[in-house]
Every structure is written in C-alpha cells, then in structure tokens.
Design a protein around this nucleic acid. Sequence first.
DNA 1: TCGCTTGTTGATGG
DNA 2: GCCATCAACAAGCG
Length: 271
Amino acid sequence: MPELPDVEGYRRVLDLCGSGHRITRIDVADAGVLRETTAPRLRKALVGRRVGAPERHGKWLLARTDGPTALLHFGMTGRLVAQAPTDPLAPHDRVTFVLDDDRQLRFRDQRKLKGIWLAEDEDGVDRLIGDQGPDALSVTPAQLDRLLAGRRGRIKSVLTDQSVVAGLGNLLADEILWRAGIRPSRPASDLAPGERRRLAGAMRSVLRASVKEGHVPARPSWLTGHRDDPDPVCPRSCGPMRRDRVSGRTTAWCPDCQGDPAPTSGRGPAA
DNA sequence: TCGCTTGTTGATGG
DNA sequence: GCCATCAACAAGCG
C-alpha cells in the first residue's frame, strides 16, 4: 500500500507527534522488522534521544534524532500510527516508540517485508538510500526528460524503478500514465516531447492531490476509483478498462485513452 | 491447495 | 550492460 503519499502522511504523523520529544522507551514485539540491528542496539541508540524534524525520500522515512537516524520502509503493508498508552496493542504492532509525553508511535506491519534500519551518521543513511533517484514530488519536466533519455524499458517499469525516480508504486504509476494518456507498455525512450510534458504534469498533479489525502484517493473521476471493480469502466472514455501484467505487476489502463494494446505484432499503428 | 496482493531484491536468460 | 521474468521474502484472504 504505501507509496510516496502514504509515507508523506507517516512523516506528518511523526512530525506532529514526535518532533521535540524525547524517546523514553522502545518496545519490540517482533524483532523480525529490525534490519541489520537488534532490539538492545535500537534502544541503546535511541532511548533518551530527542526526535528531530523527520524527512522523506521516495518511500523511505528518515526519523531524525539528536543522535542516530532510524530509517523506516513500509513495504506493502506497513504503517506508522500515533497512539495513546491506553490503546490496546494491535496484532501487527511490531515496534512501539514511547515518548516523554506518554504518547506512542507504533510501527504496524502485517507482512514484515521491510522494516526499520539504524544509521549512526550520514554515511550510514547514504549507504541505505543512496541509490534512490530524485524524489518524485520534486521532479521537474526537464529533469524527467533526462531521466527517461536512453531508457529502453517500458515506461511503467521505468517510473516504478526507485533508482530512476523515488516514490512511485504500482497504483501511482497507473494513475499517472492514465492521466497522461500514455500506454504503460510503451518504451520510455519512445515518448515524444509533448508526451513527456504531459507525463510530468500528470505526475505533479496526481502526487499533489494524493499527498494531500495521505494516499492515492479512489475518486470516481480517477482510474484508481475503478481499477478494482468487477468490470472496470474508464471514467473518461466510458469504455472497458484493461487489466494486464506489465513488468510483473497488475496494470490497469484504458485502451481508448492510452493508445493501442501491447505491440505484440511489432508495430502499433497509433503508437 | 492455489492464486492473489499498492514493495524490493537477486538470479537467470535473451 | 540493459531488460524481462521469476522466485523469494511473509502473511492474510477468497
């Protein structure tokens, strides 16, 4: 679930609830989410530290303190929730950070695909997320041109490649490509300048609206509002939507709005 | 039991 | 080197 907008929401939770407060205790209910560290080492590094202004890069949340930085990645099912001490522990609350005002920040994650890392300094941060491309929210049209140049892969694969641009997941990529009217299976380097401009604009507007909500909203006027319907219909063309696999991920798109089906026969007439 | 899932990584093959 | 596919990670649902 978590893509850039979700993680930005968790960043706000951490900022609102944590910034300026000291960490007084860390409860580890399931050490399976601790990566390259242990519960004792996490406590030694962070208990007593004051929480600073959190940052986000792509889908990574950087929990700053006046000491080490904790790096959180939420995989497909992770969340960060603020709770009162009286709130019962949820089944998937893996790590609880208790603050000096008794409030709690809980790393809640069903599937434990990712988790929490610890970085002692900026070199450590860089080692963990240094391979990430620029954050999708900050990408300009000119920058997108440079990022796509020479990429022979499919545009959807390129957009969801975190080392190219950081923050876009399956849902966002589909929504953005649909908004821009570009077929997900198009080779990235084939896009015309006008298409790249539309893509940059769609990325910006979809991201802005989604960040405001803290997730990709399933609005009736959006692709995301219909992609899980039994027989999904495109809210723009009113034609049937398609569900294919592109680069191993379920891909929802509209043949009317996004050109012809995958170019299996070699050359797509309108492509 | 199988297939599926909004994320990521590493192996493998073209 | 680039790209696509697949399996794996882990857990739940239908």
